[in-house]
């Protein structure tokens, strides 16, 4: 039988930007099985907060996992109060990560993130550079950027965009890519749906495809409730089917996603 819940011990938990926290957990089994692009479900100590919080894996380091999360509600507010030594209940890593087999040594990759979609790009960048792939990261924020140094340290050429114009390029990641004429052999992204939609259109115009990590409000996180779905057009049959983001994703090919599904 597959194991579902494990215990994790908080090693550190600090604020790295406004309402953005970075938490490192010691959790041997989960860390050893984790892949870039997966997520874990964190369970709250406040039992009135019934559902687990799905958080993407930012960094895998031996027996440790680092998560970077936005404080957006009561659950993540509780998370932000945890400190060294606190124990929490967590699921094993869930979902399918990015497929790295699509690029080979010596090729190039563009990894693109928006806001709280930036964290999974860190482990992705590390995994790609380890394979000898040249990585360019394009990250966009409303105002305050984060994870810039870790991305550079992981080996990425970094481009930053902000909506406010306070740091880097004034505008969104797609405009930045267009201006800088950034292209690559493979594309990977994580971020809010409108960004992923615009980005997919942009990449498809270049006759390329892109692996995107979809965001959707989840219930169980293991495929039972069918709460988090996105509409996918099957490449062979052309039929539209609703797939589970938690189980069949969260990473899908941009060309398969039906953006205007009813």
């Amino acid at each position: 039988m597959e194991k579902y819940r494990v215990e994790a011990r908080v090693l550190s938990n600090e604020c790295i930007a406004k309402d953005v926290y970075q938490m490192t957990l010691e959790c041997v089994d989960a860390a050893l099985s984790a892949k870039c692009g997966q997520f874990v479900n964190l369970y709250m100590k406040n039992e009135s907060l019934l559902l687990p919080r799905p958080i993407s894996i930012c960094w895998i380091d031996g027996a440790k996992l680092t998560l970077v999360y936005g404080m957006v509600g009561k659950g993540t507010e509780e998370l932000s109060t945890y400190g060294f030594g606190d124990l929490l209940q967590m699921s094993m890593p869930r979902g399918n990560g990015y497929d790295l087999e699509v690029v080979k040594e010596g090729q190039s990759a563009l990894v693109i993130g928006g806001g709280i979609g930036v964290p999974p790009l860190l482990e992705l960048t590390y995994a790609l550079t380890q394979k000898g792939i040249k990585v360019t990261a394009v990250i966009g924020f409303q105002e305050e950027p984060f994870l810039m140094k870790p991305l550079i340290k992981a080996g990425a050429d970094l481009y930053v965009a902000t909506d406010s114009g306070t740091s880097g390029f004034h505008g969104n990641v797609v405009d930045l890519m267009e201006q800088e004429k950034l292209t690559a052999d493979a594309y990977f992204a994580c971020g809010p749906k409108p960004m992923l939609n615009a980005l997919t259109n942009f990449v498809l115009q270049q006759k390329k495809d892109i692996q995107i990590s979809m965001e959707e409000r989840m219930g169980c996180g293991y495929g039972a409730c069918v709460g988090c779905v996105c509409t996918i057009r099957d490449k062979e049959s052309g039929l539209e089917v609703r797939k589970k983001v938690c189980k069949d994703g969260p990473v899908f090919w941009g060309s398969e996603v039906v953006w205007d599904a009813k």
Partner: peptide, 12 residues
Amino acid sequence: PTPRIAETYGGM
């Protein structure tokens, strides 16, 4: 259509 899930106090 989504969102299909919302948490409530002690429920969903």
